[in-house]
Nucleic acid binder design. Structure first.
Lengths: 237, 237
DNA sequence: CAGACTAAACCTACGTTGTAGGAATAGCAA
DNA sequence: TTGCTATTCCTACAACGTAGGTTTAGTCTG
């Protein structure tokens, strides 16, 4: 096998160049997106850069412009990936077995779980306006049950958007929150409670003990229940 | 006087240097933040940079590190500014005259209006986790009425956070949406409706006409009403 | 009123970033 | 063979945030 290898012991670039051999498949849209998501998971959204991604894949930074249109498109791709990982019910029939409430709860929880699987990447999904076809799956999964439950088209769309707004906001808060804030870190939350009590605002002081702690899961379920209660009630007025 | 000026006719830097004369007040935290907000309003969040801001203020990029801690702190400052521009009721007494519902509506609409006044800067407020004292004003404005209406502390905090989540999500969607999408642009929405009808998803197709258009104001009021209806109902079960 | 100190401006320079524009190399089509 | 195309790497650039230093004017202290 020639004489090229042995002395480059430390870090020399292999100087690989030109079209890769047959089935090597060094890069591909899939591989690039997966690596990017992994990088975001590990280092956070701010830390991601084309160059770091290149380093991780042992590839030139410019190489994945063959597979992705640029940094923004790469983020779009990540969002698409995460959304399509949710796995909504494909057949319409599914939603007829469960009631409106259960269908909505299932979809909301699946959505939440998908975001929590990649908390640092979640803002990409939650922030972006996605007109892509992928984004239609969750829409169908929500509107279907609403129509089946008897909602007229216009109200169903309003309801969809209200639930969507809640999901986006709740998850933005959850994934953005300092992990220390979430639970049981008694030192931090004790400090926070003290700050609240010193605020001088009466209602804040009265509820300081609860404001100082967040259990995201029960908050999520509480808000979701509020919305679903109203939706149920609207059906028989 | 002197001989420094006349030939630098085009773009020569004035080479102003050293501490500025007495009341010049070239820069100040206020001025910097206001200019930054104006810049964001005009060019968008992505386009903003310390250097462009410096250019606009005719100042060296490094100069406002005397007034602001860095780019991130500058964005924090913008968020703080926008929040404090809302003007929540200061006296507790106010909230006793109105009912729970009206108090919440007033606060929600004020919040929304503040975001719509600077749509391109709004994400800064909506995204950031703000432990600052400024952020307590809106919290007080919501929790006060809840307690007054008879909510126990824990439920009041849950309710607060549900409403907050909805506000954040709804406004993220609104300010992020393409302006063309919003209303009356019949060409774009007709195209969009056609796309939806071609999606193959039954519920999406059935509601395509409504999905193709958004009236953000009525969506906002609809979702808010859903939440408030539930909150009202919880008081007498 | 002199000397030291501080505040607020500017200047220089560094490392990083996204990506435009090519050059090289390997497979495929004619 | 002679091209053509796809995929990689290389070079280079303009723009970014900001660390570190310099300059000057006002302010404080003796």
């Amino acid at each position: 096998m020639g004489h090229d290898g042995p002395m480059s012991s430390v870090k020399a670039k292999p100087a690989r160049r030109g079209r890769p051999p047959r089935g090597s498949e060094l890069l591909s849209r899939q591989r690039v997106l997966e690596a990017a998501l992994a990088l975001v998971d590990e280092e956070g959204l701010d830390a991601i850069s084309m160059r770091k991604l290149a380093l991780r894949l042992d590839v030139d930074p410019m190489s994945f412009y063959n597979h992705v249109d640029g940094k923004d498109a790469l983020l779009d791709g990540i969002a698409e990936m995460m959304l399509s990982s949710i796995g909504f019910p494909e057949t319409v029939g599914d939603s007829e077995h469960k009631g409106l409430r259960e269908s909505m709860e299932v979809m909301a929880r699946k959505f939440r779980q998908a975001m929590l699987d990649h908390p640092r990447a979640a803002p990409v999904v939650l922030t972006r306006q996605l007109p892509s076809i992928v984004a239609l799956a969750p829409i169908e999964a929500v509107i279907g049950p609403l129509l089946a439950a008897g909602y007229p088209s216009d109200k169903a769309v309003h309801a969809l958007r209200s639930v969507l707004a809640f999901l986006i906001g709740a998850l933005m808060r959850e994934v953005g929150a300092a992990p220390t804030f979430s639970a049981s870190d008694s030192e931090a939350s004790r400090q926070r409670e003290a700050d609240l009590r010193a605020s001088g605002l009466p209602a804040v002081m009265a509820t300081a003990a609860h404001l100082a702690v967040i259990d995201h899961e029960t908050e999520f379920e509480f808000g979701l229940a509020l919305l679903l209660d109203s939706l149920d009630n609207q059906l028989r007025p």
